[in-house]
Design a protein around this nucleic acid. Structure first.
Lengths: 218, 218, 218, 218
DNA sequence: CATGAATGAGTATTCATTCAT
DNA sequence: CATGAATGAATACTCATTCAT
């Protein structure tokens, strides 16, 4: 298994679900639903799942409270839908139109850059996914989405290790370092920033990429 | 400013607040209070601040619900006290009886090892501090405790950079990488483990330390 | 006043209202309306007025929720219409083509038999009328329909008492015994039956008729 | 099985549960609980289970809405407790200190009189039990309480039939006639009365008793 | 000091009704 | 005429907090 098959799989999985949704619910995917999702995303990031009242989501989304229950089975159903769709969007962003590279150095740079682009462009989504990493109200399907991604990355890491390009350490450990450092960079650089433009500068991302590469390279 | 003054400051700060508490509430620090703190820590880690009911904390602590309000002003008062005391315990663990070293390599290893010891021995505390990083119900004093720690580390980093031992990058960025990677290692290694012994092996900690050192060394 | 004038009055009253409806809404009496009435009858019997949601009635009737409001002013309007029409159907069934008898024994047998036929053929209707006997959401017109029937029966009873054929007791009391016993027979005999065929056997009806006649005969 | 063993059984069953409650919840049976039960009884009689809002019960009982949930698990738990306790009170009233008679005539008069006393003294209780006869929210235990009573009466009827004192008809049918007529008398006599004194006169009860006895006697 | 019964404001969710299509 | 998506008031129930004991 190399990065290309992984990328292909991810693309397939993403487009599959997108297609599935389109065919089943082309009409259901209303702007109301989108407004609810958007409002929920913002509020959950601000105050967490239990910290947000459903009518508050409705108000921010400019819909009636009851409308939420026409689109989602429950508050839990809403977070789960949000989690799955954002995770998919993230996966999609990272692997879509991925260049055909085999050298780990380039591969890592490409992945990091894409993740950085996504995090910069979708700060809320990224924080949301981070916060809800292991929330007790996520259902099995949502957890499965997460698991699939982890396995994808693990496969890439193992392959690169076999080629002697990465340090010989448990893939989970390397992945933890990379993903943790990525999140840490965002936290570290944005801690004191104004809420307006939650963006890490390209220069900082580039520096960080250099550092983290050295952490994992052979 | 070097690590020793920082260590001294941290020790002072910790003992200061301990003393402050002691003088004000030496008698209040009953075993009931400890039981409440312990119960709250466990439950907040399991289900988050809003996910836990005060009477539930009382039940787990084997005290009456009203008793909690003799020791803490409110539920928010309780999390804040918990946050401050656990953060202090963490700081204390990391800097207490710190060896007199100046070389960044040794310094880093010592810090990492102490952090690892704390995280292994106090998994709940570590996760709690992580989860409540930027919770909206933390008050200014709690945030100040956090801030002081960050500044401490920043100072150490800057000093080491000045000696040419660390990469030239914004201290916040390096700190983000280190702290993020540290958390990432715990997540990555424990993701699939049984809940019984939430412990990362010494070998993994050592490997990770090597990796992360390479990320930041000059 | 004898039974024949009563029968005549009842027939008149029934046809009057039927005609009234016909002239006002001959076109409105669509099969949709009937489907709604039928669905509502079933559901109200199963779970009571407040236990049934309007959209649920719509679903069972295979119409849109809004359609109900083209035929009835409100949920209350719907029960009231249902109550009045079922009550009328009951009255009609009992007195329609009533034989010209004057002896109370025959009269009673005829009434009882007709009521039994109706109850067997329209179990839901009967239970519905019974359950909604004094519901607070019945309006004055619905109550008047009920009242008129009671007065009819009272007149017959008084007449028979004057001829010395029935016991000398307040007509209301005798009527209470008869109607109560009638309902009691249904309850007693069907309590444990399967839901499939809610029917009291002819033999039981006959036995019960004998018993109840003895309760009221002079 | 004769009436005396039945009476004994009923007394035992009643006192058993009373004793059970006393030992388990002597302290729990507060005046708040009683106030809630009383308020719920009145309101459920007025508008039915689904027609009454929980906060309304709280208001009438002069307690906080939350207090209801300290005494009952849910609204359903409340009706079920009410049903069971009122049914038990009814059974107790009817069979307590029952005279040792064997002749069906006396037996019937004694039962009827006691039922009448109960219904006159506890009009709401009686109507409540009648209305909730077969409500879908009654749990199995509540239904069992009802069933036990029916079986008791059936046994008495069968015994009297065997002695040739009652008509040869299915016991369920005779019981349906008697209980139905009893309810019918109340309905018939009180239909138009003021709400103040929902009482059937002793004379009417006596007349009705005569009538109904003739319905079932051999 | 400690308690836990009581409270009522606040929560998620349902449902009668409307109205744009 | 018929529809069903949308609504928000109303419902059952929870929970942080108080206070009499």
């Amino acid at each position: 298994m190399n990065i290309h098959s992984v990328v292909a799989a991810a693309k397939h999985s993403a487009s599959e679900s997108a297609a599935g949704r389109a065919s089943q619910q082309r009409i259901v995917v209303s702007d109301k639903r989108d407004a609810i999702m958007q409002a929920a995303l913002e509020l959950f990031v601000e105050r967490g799942f239990y910290g947000v009242a459903v009518p508050e989501i409705a108000e921010r989304a400019q819909v009636g409270a009851g409308t939420i229950y026409r689109h989602f089975e429950s508050k839990e159903g809403l977070v789960n839908a949000l989690y799955r769709e954002e995770k998919q969007r993230f996966a999609q962003s990272v692997v879509a139109s991925f260049p055909a590279i085999d050298r780990a150095r380039e591969l890592f740079r490409a992945l990091w850059t894409r993740m950085a682009s996504f995090a910069n462009a979708n700060h809320n989504s990224f924080v949301f996914l981070e916060l809800h990493h292991h929330a007790p109200y996520l259902d099995d399907q949502s957890r499965a989405v997460e698991l699939r991604m982890i396995e994808m990355f693990e496969a890439v890491i193992t392959a690169a290790q076999n080629r002697g390009e990465l340090k010989a350490a448990p893939p989970r450990l390397l992945m933890g370092i990379v993903m943790g450092a990525f999140t840490g960079v965002i936290r570290g650089c944005l801690e004191s920033e104004s809420k307006a433009d939650r963006v890490v500068s390209d220069a900082d991302w580039k520096l960080a990429e250099q550092c983290v590469w050295e952490a994992i390279r052979a």
